[in-house]
Design a protein around this nucleic acid. Structure first.
Lengths: 212, 212
DNA sequence: TTCGGTTTGACCACATCGGTCAAGCCTTAA
DNA sequence: TTAAGGCTTGACCGATGTGGTCAAACCGAA
């Protein structure tokens, strides 16, 4: 890509990036039209190709951009200092939702990126995602107080359950044409967590208000 | 559509239907190519349009076909006679998975059908799905022993949680490029249900082996 | 006023796709 | 053996949409 892109006013960069995220998020790679992206960004197609020499380059840049945002937000100081499993989950859930509110099409883009066939871009992407998943897992479980769990409760498993539920929950919203909003989603998420905590923690580590 | 289609040998009907399910499941409506469908079915494009006069008709037929399969399997005699919430869930889960094993692309088709924009087909579909959802809900909850639940446990809510988890679980599989298989999925599902049962049923209605 | 980088959008060659149809194939019946 | 008629083919077409190009216009600084 053309490094001049970075010298654009941030507002213009964002207009282009967000437009691209929206279109790539709404359609699969091949049908995501550069014409539409340029139009949504309020910019000529020529300019788009001036900064990103071709569609593939734009897509890949976008991918790294999105991945960076998410990683930076989640793996930060505050995060490292929390040692309770459920507190970490709640914290990072909150952060994630905050990002989604700021970048409305980030979610769609991520979903399409993971679930579509990717075609042209396939090889390169597959590698990145797997690596990143593992690194996130490590980050999550490295420094946690796992002794609070009952013997027969596998934290990794609990974690996955919650992820699946969140995933399914969002799909359900989309199916009904609703937007992904912070408040109700966090409320759901907290209900689930409370329940699971009560189920999986040893008696000693349950607070008074966990119990009802 | 041309009623002659029904007079084809079933094997040929299925070849066409399955090919269409695969292609519509893999790509969104507009990019699902009739050329490819015909090729996968081992049939000329001309023949495809001889039986289904246009793409839209084929798609709509396929939708009803799939919906029928699922409904027939789930809402049957055996089903009506089960009155325990969790037994019903397990039964219908097992049935659903059995169907998925028989029709490998049914799942993909269903997912695309619910989540894609549908464009041309939109209006008609939206109505069908909503109605069907409600009818399934009624079917599910109409004749169940809901008194077994603790006061603060909402069965509908539990049901939704399980649906979300299953949804998320399958997406997770797909993300890792794995197939949706019966055994591990049912195992997961049963673990979830056991846990939820222990949490949500009144003490009196828990069997001995629910408790560990 | 000039100059160089930035921005435009008409333009192109190409690919894809839904749908058609004249022609062939094959079974059936006389 | 032949004629009829329905089933099946696939080359073909017009329409649409696409990524990418480029000469020209624009514009701020010197």
């Amino acid at each position: 890509m053309n490094d001049k892109f970075y010298e654009l006013p941030e507002e213009k960069q964002l207009r282009i990036l967000n437009a691209a995220m929206e279109v790539f998020g709404l359609h699969e790679y091949k049908r995501a039209s550069t014409d539409v992206i340029a139009a949504k960004a309020g910019v000529s197609k020529g300019l788009l190709f001036y900064y990103f020499h071709n569609k593939r380059e734009l897509y890949l840049y976008l991918y790294h951009y999105v991945a960076d945002i998410m990683k930076k937000q989640i793996v930060n100081k505050e995060f490292q200092e929390i040692t309770d499993f459920y507190e970490v989950l709640e914290y990072s859930a909150r952060e994630k939702v905050r990002i989604l509110e700021k970048n409305p099409y980030l979610l769609e883009f991520a979903v399409k990126t993971f679930y579509s066939e990717k075609e042209d871009v396939s090889g390169e992407l597959q590698k990145i995602t797997v690596e990143q998943m593992q690194s996130v897992y490590k980050e999550y479980f490295g420094h946690l107080d796992l002794y609070k769990f009952k013997e027969d409760a596998d934290p990794m498993y609990i974690y996955k359950m919650l992820v699946w539920m969140a995933d399914g929950y969002m799909h359900n919203l989309k199916m009904n044409g609703k937007k992904v909003e912070m408040k109700p989603m966090m409320q759901e998420f907290q209900t689930w967590m409370k329940m699971l905590k009560r189920l999986t923690y040893k008696e000693d580590y349950l607070d008074e208000d966990d119990r009802n």
